[in-house]
């Protein structure tokens, strides 16, 4: 079986400081991987290197493209990479405002990716947008409202709809539930789980919330100072951590 994403030796330095160093792993279709670690551990740098937002100093990010099979996305041309970014890849930002156009209606936000890949039938675009609002539990009557009138949880769900409307195969998520009320987080987690299952999505989720990865991720990577210190099955890493830092991380969480 070909991995959907094969990350090899990704290294990113900021001057003398290491962002992330020599990270490698394979992600297979349908797998959800969590990346945890404290602030500054390099998890966001790694995510941005994989998603093409940052150029790593070394390493490969090989994606199994629909048409040409495995391709290194770092050396592919920018138009190709950006095309991936609005078709087979999706990126869910921590702050919905970073991933939405706040001056554009909910329908327009969801429809943008469709129009970007050449859909030119207003009625079809609007129908698809409305359908997706329903799938992320936003009432169809809100299709013409701007996200500025939405709550934080709704904005985040809208961002997810906007990302998933073109049926991507790989979703990058940066703290998708960060900054949301606990009750809103739960609903979002359930929604994400359902979408991942029903669409057969692969996902990479960066978070510092161990509860989030326990519920969403099949696999887990623990990062410290830019390096992966432990990786494995999510519940195994959380319940039987092997590395000193993972043990500290797990034991530091308040039990409720």
């Amino acid at each position: 079986m070909t991995p959907l994403l094969s990350v090899q030796g990704i290294t990113k330095r900021y001057g003398a400081h290491i962002g992330c160093a020599d990270v490698s792993f394979d992600l297979y279709p349908g797998e959800v991987m969590g990346i945890v670690g404290e602030s500054g551990s390099g998890k966001s740098t790694l995510l941005n290197c994989m998603a093409g937002h940052l150029t790593p100093d070394a390493g490969q990010v090989v994606f199994d493209t629909r048409t040409d099979g495995p391709r290194d996305t770092i050396t592919m041309s920018e138009p190709e990479r950006r095309m991936l970014g609005r078709t087979d890849w999706a990126f869910v930002h921590q702050h919905a405002r970073d991933g939405l156009r706040m001056g554009v209606s909910a329908g327009g936000n969801v429809g943008e990716r469709l129009m970007a890949v050449g859909e030119r039938h207003y009625g079809d675009i609007r129908d698809k947008a409305t359908d997706w609002l329903g799938r992320v539990e936003i009432d169809a009557s809100r299709v013409d409202d701007r996200p500025t009138t939405f709550s934080g949880g709704m904005q985040q769900r809208l961002q997810i709809a906007r990302n998933l409307v073109t049926g991507p195969r790989l979703v990058f998520m940066d703290e998708p539930t960060g900054g949301l009320d606990v009750s809103v987080q739960a609903r979002l987690l359930d929604l994400l789980r359902g979408l991942v299952r029903d669409m057969g999505l692969s996902a990479i989720i960066v978070t510092h919330d161990l509860a989030v990865v326990r519920l969403l991720a099949d696999r887990l990577m623990v990062m410290k100072s830019g390096r992966v210190v432990e990786a494995g099955l999510t519940d195994q890493v959380l319940d039987d951590p092997q590395h000193a830092y993972s043990q500290l991380l797990v034991s530091s969480v308040l039990q409720v």
Partner: peptide, 11 residues
Amino acid sequence: EYGLMHVKLYE
């Protein structure tokens, strides 16, 4: 990448 132009017309 001109999808955005159609977003304006969509709006």
